[in-house]
């Protein structure tokens, strides 16, 4: 599934004109990104939380050359799915293996 499919879903289910559906989906994604850019946690009930985590600098190795390098400190996004989301995925009809 891609963004285009999400837009189609909004178009089908909400009945918004295609162009508006597209604009709205973009706005939703952008608003979430902007909040994360500010280091803010985004809590979407029933879905999950996007959290910005600060990572300290650590040592890494270039797997090709074996040379040791310093991995700079950085901020990364992690997503913690809500219980509802996890249950939804677990209880779905499709079976694993």
């Amino acid at each position: 599934m891609t963004k285009a499919d999400i837009i189609s879903e909004v178009f089908d289910r909400v009945g918004l004109p295609k162009q508006d559906a597209e604009e709205l989906v973009e706005m939703i994604l952008d608003t979430i990104k902007q909040a994360l850019k500010q280091g803010e946690t985004v809590k979407l009930s029933g879905f999950g939380n996007f959290v910005v985590r600060k990572k300290n600098s650590r040592k890494g190795r270039n797997p090709k050359t074996g040379q040791e390098i310093e991995i700079t400190p950085r901020s990364v996004v992690s997503f913690r799915p809500s219980m509802i989301f996890k249950d939804h995925v677990l209880s779905s009809a499709t079976t694993t293996e």
Binding site: M1, E9, V10, L29, H88
Partner: peptide
């Protein structure tokens, strides 16, 4: 309603073991 539809469609995709790729987002 639109925000919920977006989130629900992502949940539904994963429930049917589909993946969701949103360029620039994740």
């Amino acid at each position: 309603n639109i925000v919920s539809t977006v989130l629900d469609s992502i949940k539904a995709a994963l429930a049917r073991e589909d993946k969701v790729e949103i360029r620039g987002f994740g």
